[in-house]
Each structure stands twice: as C-alpha cells, then as structure tokens.
Nucleic acid binder design. Structure first.
Lengths: 238, 238
DNA sequence: CCTTCGCCGTACGGTTTGGTACTAAAAAAT
DNA sequence: ATTTTTTAGTACCAAACCGTACGGCGAAGG
C-alpha cells in the first residue's frame, strides 16, 4: 500500500494487461480521475492532452461534420481507453468525446503515453489491438446506422452500454439517446415505450433499467455482438 | 532498369512516402499485380495473406454480420493499402474486401510487412497514419449512413471513388452501388436519374460519368470532405 | 408551497425509403 | 441471328421516420 503505483484495484482491462516489464513506462504517469456525466474529454480539431483509461462509466465518441451533423461512432468503457488517435501516432482529436455515464478512471498525458508505445513493442501491440477493436466497433456502427431500424439500434446501444456498466440502470434522458443514435427524441420515446410494454426495460424520468437483457439481445439480433466477440479474441478471454 | 526493385513509376502514395532507409524492408517483397473488377482481396474471418498497395482502381471494404446484412465501411485506392488490420498487429480479416473498380498495384505478403513495421519506427508511423485515415473515413461513413439522405450518400460515394480514379467514368451497375450504400437498387436508379436530369452525370448501361463534380459536391455537402482533408494532414500534401 | 424548467407522452402530416414486381432495353451467349 | 441474361426504368403500397408542436407531469429551486 506504500507502493506509489500499485496495480491493486485496477479494473481497466488494458492497464491490467500491461506486462510488469512495461508498467514503469505507464504507471508513474497515471493520475486517478473522477469523471462526471457530460464531462468533455476531447474536442474536435483540438489536441488530445490525455488518454483516459476508464474504470467506471461510459464515454461516447461522436463524429461531427462542418454542418453540425453528429452521431455516435463508438463507446468506450473499462475495456478500453480514450484517445485512440494517440495510439496511432496522431494527437489531434477528430471527434467529440465525453462521458455519457459518469464514472472514474486513470488518465495519462499524451506525451509519456506515446513515448511508452514507441519504446515497448509489447505495450504497442496491446494498444493497437485495442484500437483495432475500436475500429471494428465503428465499422459495425456504420453497418447498424445504414441497415438497422431504430429499435434495433436502440437495443444495440443499450447492450453496449450495459456491457460497460455495473448496474442495470442507464441514467440517460431520451434526448441524449436520440443524439447518440442520430434520430428524433420522440422516436426514442416511442421505441422505449415499446420495450417497456414487452417487459424488456422499466423506466423512470431520466433513467431506464434493463429488465430482460436476453429479450433486448433478440431485438438487436446480429447488429450486436461481433465487435464484442472480436475484442475478446484480440485481448484474450477473461 | 536493371534494378530489381526500382521505385520509378510507383503511384501509390504510401509506397512513395517510404524513406530510402526503409525501402529494403518493403521493396524486395513487392509483387506487381493486376486487379480485376470483383476480385476478392479479403474474406471475413479468414487470414489476410497479403496487403495490396493499389496504384489504379478502387477497393471496397464491406462489413458483414451474421445475418448477412452488409454495407461498405470504406474505400481504398492509390492513397492507401488494404489489410488495415495487419498494420494494427492483427492478421484476421473482419470485412469483405474486393475490387470495385479494376486496376493494379503491388502486393506484399503479410509476414514481411509485419516484420518491417515492427523493425522500422518510421515505416510504422507511416502505416499507422494511413490506418488512422481509414478509421476517420469509417467514422464518417457511420455519420453519413445515419444522417444523410440517399442522394447525399450517393454523391459522397461518387466523389470518393472519383478521387481515386484517373477517369470520370465509373463502371458500375446500380445494383453494386446499392449494395455499397445499403439501399434498394431501385432507389439508386431514381437518384441517378435525378443527377442526370440536373446535368451532374451522364449514364450508360453499367457506367456513370461525372459531368459536374462541383454540383455533386454541393449535394454531398459536408458529408464529403473531412476524411479527405484529414488524410492530407496526416500524410502531408503533395 | 408554489413556480419554473426539463423531460416525456403523444399526435399529425409529410417525406423518404423499403419491398416487390413487372417490363423494356441492352448486352452477351449460343 | 436468335435466345438468354443482365441491367435499368417505373410503379405501387406500406412502413419507418422526420419535423414540429403542444400539453402534462415530475423534479428542482425559490
């Protein structure tokens, strides 16, 4: 417990997978952080100052274009790290990244992280596999956006969020879900209502609780699952 | 001309950017290839055997799920290389990749490529920037799929293909465009008809020719352009 | 306690796109 | 040259979704 950078109690899957021989490159630079809902982590076109290894909570990565069209292209939780471009040698944020569900984690400034990745092949391999996992997730978001119906996309989102949460309660308004999915707020309301009627979720103002995950998986069908399975393959089971 | 691995006449932007000091890692392994329309380059879940540095032609990367939903998540031409997962340390194909418009290029077996990337930091940086460019493209495909109308998406696709072609003629059937965009063939026919009426394209059976690129850019609006600008930033102008 | 504000339920017309299908025209095959 | 196959034009109804809007209800704050 006197050990300054002990790894006990670390839940982030990437940090946990860093080999002992590489820990000195990362551990000393980590800073524990609390992350509130809506906390901004990256702003488009601006430099990425830190990478956040999440422990608790869910971050949204939202692509934005010049005419302010926006849509979520990926979510990040305890299984990953924000600042994917840093892992690829770029330090500029493309997308808007912010906490969708509050939590905590450890952050590291971009420079020591990039140094560490440059120095250690093992660390680099780990981080790139994580980035690859994110790329797969983004590709499947493109697939779902193009081919799935609102209900399926909502189900997919709930499942992905749920995977990254410790509770079944998703503390989000319909408005925010609508922004993520790129649809009308009213459309989300109706879809959730449908879920509720079928006993898949229960709702309260500003909150939605998964009641029947299996049923939600059925609705999402094959729009959910592939990126999750691939991440498992890339990073090993456990 | 006696030089076995001369770099003269190479149009691929990545190959052109490889430093002289790294060329020995790549050049000797390159094999010139002709790539016909519909030629398959990668098959989902199977190992990636080669990376293809395209010179001419356009490859489509198509995500497929377990229920056979499919949609294009990116295109690759002379500016890039297929087999993005290889650059990230993975050798398994997630997506279906095939030539949408025939051409030619040079291919390299996956092993020497991965070795080269492991050995040379400069080469690695170059390849990862290319991968980052592809990730940005995929994210914007997700954005367009979720928010843009059929006409806008068609315009975006035509512009991206045109950027990678030497001619204005796109030798594709409506059917294939429909698969790329994940829409009905009939929808594509109607949209193209609209473009034609406005003088943006001319058509022949199995072929479509861009007549007014500026007009097509107007239709695509901000759904087109960001990934292209970012790739320029990542790889430098020229 | 009462007001204010944010969130949700609902509605309605309009647009876009999907599913399907039939025919014509062009190209390819025999 | 004739047949077969592929591609394109068109049409029709149905479903999904958008834009918009308005009222109610719960929560927070004065």
């Amino acid at each position: 417990m006197l050990e300054a950078h002990a790894r006990t109690g670390i839940r982030n899957r990437l940090l946990n997978k860093i080999g002992l021989e590489d820990w000195d490159l990362i551990g000393p630079h980590l800073e524990p952080v609390t992350l509130k809902e809506r906390q901004v982590i990256e702003v488009p076109t601006k430099p990425i100052t830190h990478a956040y290894f999440l422990e608790i909570g869910v971050a949204s990565v939202v692509a934005v274009d010049a005419e302010d069209h926006r849509i979520e292209v990926g979510v990040i939780g305890y299984e990953g790290v924000t600042g994917v471009p840093l892992l690829m040698g770029d330090n500029r944020a493309q997308h808007s990244t912010y906490m969708q569900i509050g939590g905590s984690g450890h952050r590291i400034p971009q420079e020591p992280l990039r140094d560490a990745i440059a120095k250690s092949e093992g660390l680099r391999a780990l981080m790139l596999k994580s980035a690859q996992g994110f790329l797969i997730q983004t590709a499947h978001t493109a697939l779902a956006n193009g081919r799935a119906k609102l209900e399926q996309r909502l189900a997919r989102w709930l499942l992905m969020a749920h995977d990254r949460m410790t509770s079944d309660a998703v503390p989000l308004t319909h408005e925010f879900l609508a922004v993520m999915l790129g649809v009308r707020r009213a459309g989300v309301t109706v879809a959730i209502h449908g879920f509720e009627r079928r006993g898949l979720v229960t709702t309260r103002r500003g909150q939605l609780t998964l009641a029947d995950r299996g049923g939600i998986e059925q609705i999402a069908g094959s729009f959910y699952g592939t990126p999750e399975a691939e991440l498992k393959r890339l990073l090993g089971d456990k």
